[in-house]
Simulated scan of single mutants.
Amino acid sequence: MRQVDHTTREKLLTAAERLLLESGYERVSIRAVCAAAEANPAAVHYHFGSKEALVAALLQSRLGPLWESSMDGLDRSGATVAQCVAAVVDPLAELAADPIGRLHIRLLARLVLARQDLGFTARWFSLEPFVGLLLRRYPAMSEAEARTRWMLAFDLILGQFGAPLAADRVLSARTVATLCAFVTAGLSADQES
């Protein structure tokens, strides 16, 4: 039974990804995802609970591996703030060069910027590890300040890469470097090295 559940879950994720790429978030219904996956009309609700949770699961499965290895390595190495920012931004810059990658970034931006609690379970889809990285680098900074700085950083990063009105705009290497420098400065402002 678990294998059938896993297969149905994967079919739903794959169907949702294809439909979202073809039609956009607003035009894709739960019913359409179930039909495209050849699943019971209630399958999305059973496996995910909602359209937003389906999209969150899709993003975790597709984007999570991009951050896990690089961020986990930085977490253990005592990396600089600039290295942490680059580890977040560099995969987004790579993804932005591909239509499916741009879809993932736009969906991530939509969910994160809406401040919805979607129950992300992957470690690097939460602010907590990022806050921890910043606090280890700047122990005098309060947790609330570190959280606010990272929220603003992600707002800016996702706004640049995932702006819904940006169409197929791809940021230049120079713009990405400037974005990284700007975010790094904001995260580390008024802190001693």
Rank of each mutant, 00 (worst) to 15 (best):
A79N: 08
S61M: 15
C180F: 03
A140V: 15
L92G: 02
A16Y: 10
R169W: 15
Q60F: 15
A177K: 00
L74T: 05
L92W: 04
I100S: 05
F182C: 03
A114V: 15
L187T: 07
L92Q: 03
F125E: 14
A39N: 04
L13D: 12
A163I: 11
A177Q: 02
R174A: 11
E143I: 14
D190I: 12
D72K: 00
E52G: 02
T80R: 07
R149Y: 13
L134R: 03
A57P: 14
L113I: 08
T80P: 04
A146Y: 12
Q3K: 00
S142T: 11
P139D: 13
L127S: 08
A57Q: 10
M1E: 07
F48L: 11
I100V: 14
A39S: 03
A36F: 02
V44F: 04
A189E: 15
L113Q: 03
V89Q: 00
L107P: 10
I157Q: 01
M151F: 09
S126G: 10
C84P: 07
D90W: 02
W150E: 04
Q60L: 15
G64V: 12
L156N: 00
T184M: 05
L171A: 06
L156C: 00
V131W: 09
G159H: 03
A79C: 10
C84M: 08
A32K: 02
R169H: 14
T8L: 01
F161H: 05
G73W: 13
L59G: 09
R136M: 10
S50V: 10
L156D: 02
T7K: 00
G162A: 09
W67A: 03
D5V: 10
Q160M: 06
A173S: 08
A114D: 14
E145I: 13
L111W: 15
Y25A: 00
V89A: 01
S126F: 15
L63D: 11
R31H: 09
G73A: 05
L111T: 13
S50H: 06
E10C: 01
E17H: 05
K11Q: 14
V28E: 09
S70I: 06
A167D: 14
Q160L: 05
V176L: 08
D72T: 06
G78A: 06
S188Q: 10
L158G: 00
C34V: 12
T175H: 09
A37Y: 01
L21A: 02
K51W: 12
G101N: 14
V28C: 02
A96E: 10
P41L: 05
L113H: 06
C34M: 05
T178G: 03
W124P: 12
